[in-house]
Amino acid sequence: MQGVVKVNSALNMRSGPGSNYGVIGTLRNNDKVEIIKEVDGWYEIRFNGKVGYASKSYITIVN
């Protein structure tokens, strides 16, 4: 499943599904990501070869 990031500035990509996990990357508005699965309001995603987590509130699913 594919998604597009929708933010005003930047979205942190984290090592786990929560804001208490470390930041491993930064996503920008309109970045395209691969959604692997949903975990407690977060998406596990793949972006630029990295796998991490981002809040699903800021990612819109596209077909």
Rank of each mutant, 00 (worst) to 15 (best):
44 E>S: 06
47 F>N: 06
45 I>K: 00
31 D>L: 04
13 M>D: 00
12 N>H: 09
12 N>V: 11
19 S>R: 11
19 S>K: 13
43 Y>K: 01
62 V>I: 15
26 T>L: 12
36 I>C: 04
39 V>S: 07
52 G>L: 01
61 I>S: 06
62 V>Y: 09
63 N>Q: 13
42 W>F: 10
55 S>H: 13
14 R>C: 04
15 S>N: 13
58 Y>C: 04
48 N>H: 14
30 N>I: 03
8 N>H: 11
21 Y>V: 01
5 V>P: 02
49 G>I: 05
33 V>R: 00
36 I>K: 06
9 S>E: 14
53 Y>P: 00
14 R>T: 08
43 Y>F: 15
39 V>Y: 13
9 S>Y: 13
12 N>R: 14
8 N>I: 14
50 K>C: 05
9 S>M: 10
4 V>Y: 08
1 M>S: 08
49 G>S: 09
27 L>K: 01
20 N>P: 04
26 T>P: 06
37 K>P: 00
60 T>E: 09
41 G>F: 06
50 K>L: 15
60 T>K: 12
4 V>P: 01
54 A>D: 00
52 G>K: 00
10 A>W: 11
34 E>R: 05
29 N>Y: 08
56 K>Q: 12
32 K>I: 09
24 I>D: 03
42 W>S: 02
19 S>F: 13
39 V>E: 10
53 Y>W: 13
6 K>V: 12
41 G>S: 10
1 M>W: 10
60 T>P: 04
58 Y>Q: 07
27 L>M: 10
48 N>V: 09
18 G>L: 01
1 M>E: 07
36 I>H: 08
59 I>A: 02
11 L>R: 06
13 M>E: 01
15 S>M: 06
45 I>Y: 00
56 K>G: 10
58 Y>P: 03
22 G>D: 09
41 G>L: 09
17 P>F: 01
22 G>T: 11
18 G>C: 03
44 E>P: 00
58 Y>E: 07
46 R>W: 11
22 G>Q: 11
16 G>N: 03
23 V>A: 10
6 K>F: 11
6 K>W: 06
49 G>H: 12
8 N>G: 14
51 V>E: 08
43 Y>L: 07
17 P>W: 01
52 G>E: 00
53 Y>F: 10
24 I>M: 08
2 Q>P: 09
45 I>C: 04
21 Y>S: 04
36 I>L: 15
25 G>K: 07
20 N>F: 14
25 G>F: 13
8 N>P: 07
15 S>E: 12
30 N>F: 09
7 V>M: 04
22 G>C: 05
15 S>A: 13
59 I>Y: 01
52 G>T: 02
22 G>K: 14
40 D>P: 09
45 I>M: 08
51 V>H: 14
37 K>C: 05
12 N>L: 14
39 V>D: 12
33 V>N: 00
25 G>P: 00
59 I>M: 04
23 V>F: 04
11 L>D: 03
12 N>G: 14
24 I>P: 01
16 G>V: 01
30 N>P: 04
59 I>E: 00
32 K>W: 09
33 V>Y: 02
48 N>Y: 08
46 R>L: 08
10 A>T: 06
16 G>P: 00
52 G>Y: 02
20 N>C: 05
4 V>R: 04
32 K>P: 12
35 I>C: 04
40 D>N: 09
7 V>Q: 04
56 K>N: 08
40 D>T: 10
50 K>Q: 10
59 I>C: 03
55 S>D: 14
63 N>T: 15
22 G>H: 12
7 V>P: 04
19 S>W: 10
61 I>A: 09
4 V>M: 10
26 T>V: 15
41 G>A: 09
13 M>N: 01
49 G>N: 13
28 R>E: 14
59 I>G: 02
25 G>R: 11
38 E>N: 05
7 V>I: 15
51 V>Q: 10
20 N>R: 09
52 G>Q: 01
43 Y>G: 00
63 N>D: 12
40 D>H: 11
10 A>F: 11
63 N>C: 06
35 I>P: 01
42 W>A: 01
49 G>Q: 08
47 F>T: 07
15 S>L: 06
57 S>L: 12
60 T>M: 06
53 Y>L: 01
62 V>M: 09
34 E>C: 05
35 I>T: 02
14 R>K: 06
40 D>Q: 10
38 E>S: 09
11 L>E: 09
4 V>T: 11
17 P>E: 01
2 Q>S: 11
59 I>R: 00
42 W>H: 04
33 V>C: 04
32 K>S: 13
35 I>R: 00
30 N>V: 03
11 L>Q: 12
38 E>C: 04
21 Y>I: 01
42 W>Q: 02
27 L>A: 04
48 N>G: 12
18 G>Y: 02
46 R>P: 05
3 G>T: 03
27 L>C: 04
18 G>M: 02
62 V>W: 06
47 F>A: 12
41 G>D: 14
2 Q>A: 08
55 S>Y: 13
42 W>I: 01
37 K>M: 08
24 I>H: 03
19 S>M: 13
11 L>A: 09
29 N>S: 13
54 A>T: 14
45 I>H: 00
50 K>H: 11
3 G>N: 02
63 N>K: 04
61 I>K: 10
25 G>D: 15
25 G>N: 09
63 N>E: 13
48 N>F: 11
53 Y>A: 01
7 V>S: 07
44 E>M: 11
44 E>W: 07
40 D>A: 12
37 K>F: 08
42 W>C: 03
32 K>H: 14
19 S>H: 11
62 V>C: 05
16 G>R: 02
57 S>N: 14
55 S>M: 14
14 R>W: 11
57 S>Y: 10
30 N>E: 10
48 N>R: 08
6 K>I: 12
26 T>K: 07
38 E>T: 07
34 E>M: 07
3 G>L: 03
60 T>G: 10
61 I>N: 08
38 E>A: 08
60 T>H: 08
5 V>A: 04
62 V>G: 08
14 R>G: 02
33 V>F: 04
57 S>G: 06
31 D>K: 03
31 D>H: 04
58 Y>F: 11
38 E>V: 10
49 G>K: 11
30 N>R: 06
28 R>Q: 15
54 A>N: 00
26 T>I: 13
6 K>S: 10
39 V>A: 07
13 M>A: 05
5 V>T: 03
15 S>H: 06
26 T>M: 15
43 Y>M: 06
49 G>L: 09
8 N>D: 11
17 P>Q: 01
35 I>H: 01
31 D>S: 06
9 S>I: 08
11 L>T: 15
62 V>E: 15
29 N>E: 13
2 Q>N: 08
50 K>S: 13
50 K>P: 02
11 L>W: 02
26 T>D: 05
